[in-house]
């Protein structure tokens, strides 16, 4: 069953629709992963990238393609994407850990140093994680980008954190 039946992307489906970075590229530092697999007319990621590393082209229903060698992992595309479907993954953060940066628009936004619960695309708990960076400049237009440190083997799985729901 695919994304349109379950609501979440299995890694295999993502792999079949998007070319993902090589191990060599992951080893060099943060990189943008566009988990965008459905053709809808949309292209703000293309103009958001200062390095021109993302291409949508014409027609604008085409899926974005990230040129991983040009990508610096700055996160502008992740903040701009209307679908909140782009994540910055850094598998070179440390020997044991990786970081994942994701757009997070729920109150309360976590702070650097907070310990949070990392979840996968299904919302299922994966691991405890430490918040290492929170970026929310004016250019992100109220889409904070939260970076959490997680065990490296979960870098392809963790994509968000459990919300603290206000009663």
């Amino acid at each position: 069953m695919g994304l349109i039946e379950t609501g979440y992307l299995e890694y295999a489906e993502l792999f079949s629709r998007q070319t993902l970075p090589t191990q060599e590229r992951y080893a060099k530092g943060p990189v943008a992963i566009a988990e965008c697999v459905q053709e809808i007319p949309c292209n703000p990621c293309e103009s958001a990238c200062a390095c021109h590393a993302i291409c949508v082209g014409e027609p604008i229903t085409r899926l974005p393609r990230v040129c991983y060698d040009q990508c610096t992992g700055c996160g502008m595309c992740a903040a701009k994407c209307p679908g909140l479907a782009i994540f910055i993954v850094n598998k070179a953060y440390s020997a044991q850990t990786a970081t994942v940066s994701f757009p997070y628009e729920y109150y309360p936004v976590p702070k650097v140093g907070d310990v949070v619960r990392g979840v996968n695309r299904k919302g299922a708990y994966q691991c405890e994680a430490k918040v290492v960076k929170v970026l929310s400049p004016a250019s992100f237009d109220h889409t904070p980008l939260v970076t959490i440190e997680i065990p490296k083997h979960l870098a392809d799985e963790v994509r968000s954190i459990e919300r603290k729901c206000l009663a």
Partner: peptide
């Protein structure tokens, strides 16, 4: 229970 929204990331 008060249902007023006091906090929001966007609004």
């Amino acid at each position: 229970m008060c249902l007023r929204m006091e906090h929001h990331v966007v609004l």
